[in-house]
Design a protein around this nucleic acid. Structure first.
Lengths: 118, 118
DNA sequence: GATGTTGGTTACCTTGGGAAACCAGATAGT
DNA sequence: ACTATCTGGTTTCCCAAGGTAACCAACATC
């Protein structure tokens, strides 16, 4: 697991982590990778606040991970779609999902042990 | 990429994301997976503040991802080591590191395009 | 006994996320 | 005409997470 230079703040891994390692970005990425979704559907699905959802979607669009499609219905319909780049990233995060399902028990057990010792 | 139910807040993926999807946890996990490291070395390597480093390491320990070894030298030496569980998680994140090195250019290009359009 | 070293903890301040209200644009109901 | 309603936001205000800097304990050295 050599990063070339993880100590360097311009290391690609650090740059990518700075973009996606927050509370909601990864979850939105995974949701959108399952299919297009409207703003309100994403809000309902995640429980994220409207403000931060708008912010986070803007960043996803800026980074080239998602795109916005506006349909002039009434009321207006806005759909968010994953891009090929975003889909590729979501695919590599699939491993994390599998890991979570396999090891969540071990994590929760570790937490219980740690809390019991204190 | 079916999560069973990513809409459910108790979905394993969401629980794991809640633990590791913050500014520093993933980077510390990757660093420790390369070998044991002392507190001050982690601080220098990441640029993280002392307070948040201590906090984050405590959480890593609680979640069973890292362990703390204190050597009664003078001044005291404290080493942080990755656990098998943490190493396993870091291994699945290796895919993310590879993805970053391959696609960071596309991300930065997308950002440039987006900013130019505005 | 002042100084330096490591690994923290404790103020203090600044930034980011959450809750709720408001807004635009257009239609439906009364 | 007027109010209500729907979507997709933005604005306002508040609180929590993170950063800065100072301090502390336990020694060892000068």
């Amino acid at each position: 697991m050599d990063c070339g230079d993880l100590f360097n703040p311009d290391c690609p891994t650090r740059l990518v982590l700075d973009r996606i390692a927050d509370k909601w970005t990864v979850m939105l990425l995974v949701l959108l990778s399952q299919g297009p979704m409207r703003f309100s559907a994403l809000k309902r699905a995640t429980g994220i606040s409207q403000k931060v959802l708008a912010q986070t979607l803007k960043r996803l669009e800026r980074d080239g991970f998602a795109s916005r499609a506006v349909f002039p219905t009434v009321p207006v319909t806005v759909e968010y779609l994953i891009t090929p780049l975003g889909a590729d990233l979501a695919q590599t995060l699939e491993g994390l999902r599998l890991w979570s399902e396999r090891h969540i028990g071990a994590v929760l057990a570790a937490q219980r042990d740690y809390d019991a010792a204190a």
